[in-house]
């Protein structure tokens, strides 16, 4: 369970998040939807300690996160797959995965085996540089590198970015399976609302820095009035 309350973040004079409160229940996927510039990425970066908020609080599994360093937060079991996936292009697939295990201090050999079973394509390409992977493979590598840390909470920033619709569907299904199998708590930030809502249990909408609703995903999907917000066409 991760609970964000009254969170405000500003970059200088520009307010990125304004009194945002969102709760993501344990073992569920909570989608955070919104148009470009709605503050979605800022939200995740604040959770993982990369951005210092102006006010508000974030607690995850009983730990207060505000003020902690990003690496400390990561070792608390919070994995963040950043926008653009954060795969290190100069490293091989296996080096990227090993790095994930080393950072979280989990068993490297067992972790590699587990991720290779989950993502056979990564095993095939384990000696290749990440720069040579396709977009979908990179996303799998980013997911594998996050999962090798055995996290309790997974933060995903736009996993569908730059992927073909079929590949996006594949990645979304993988996320759903990961969550179902391991009791993982997921916050899924997406512009691609349709794909995200398909696999999510709950959904919140961010609109120019304000959170609009945290409701069951099916309700949000059916709500015509909200659709204009997350499609970015609201006034």
């Amino acid at each position: 369970m991760i609970s964000i309350s009254h969170l405000s973040v500003a970059y200088g004079a520009i307010v990125a998040l304004d009194d945002v409160s969102i709760e993501a229940p344990t073992g569920a996927i909570t989608a955070v939807l919104g148009a470009n510039g709605a503050g979605k990425t800022t939200l995740l970066r604040t959770i993982s300690g990369l951005v210092k908020p102006r006010s508000g609080s974030i607690t995850a599994n009983g730990h207060a996160l505000i003020g902690e360093r990003p690496d400390t937060i990561a070792r608390l079991g919070i994995a963040h797959v950043p926008e653009g996936r954060g795969v290190i292009a100069e490293f091989t697939v296996e080096e990227n995965l090993r790095l994930g295990a080393l950072g979280a201090k989990t068993n490297v050999t067992a972790g590699l085996e587990e991720q290779y079973t989950l993502f056979p394509v990564l095993k095939e390409r384990r000696k290749q540089y990440a720069a040579q992977l396709s977009g979908g493979e990179r996303q799998m590598l980013a997911l594998g590198r996050a999962m090798i840390a055995n996290p309790q909470i997974l933060l995903l920033d736009e996993p569908s970015l730059g992927l073909a619709p079929l590949v996006t569907q594949d990645i979304m299904n993988t996320i759903k399976t990961l969550c179902a199998n391991s009791g993982l708590t997921v916050i899924l930030v997406e512009q691609n609302a349709k794909s995200a809502l398909k696999i999510s249990d709950y959904a919140a909408v961010l609109h120019v820095g304000k959170s609009i609703a945290v409701r069951p995903a099916a309700e949000v999907a059916a709500d015509e009035s909200l659709r204009s917000y997350y499609l970015g066409m609201a006034e």
Partner: peptide, 24 residues
């Protein structure tokens, strides 16, 4: 070595390394 991998990662991609729990 593992230490070398962490050293290279910290130099190449400090932010990503931090997100993975590396003490950059």
């Amino acid at each position: 070595t593992s230490l070398g991998l962490k050293l290279r990662a910290s130099a190449l991609a400090p932010e990503v390394s931090k997100l993975l729990g590396i003490r950059v």
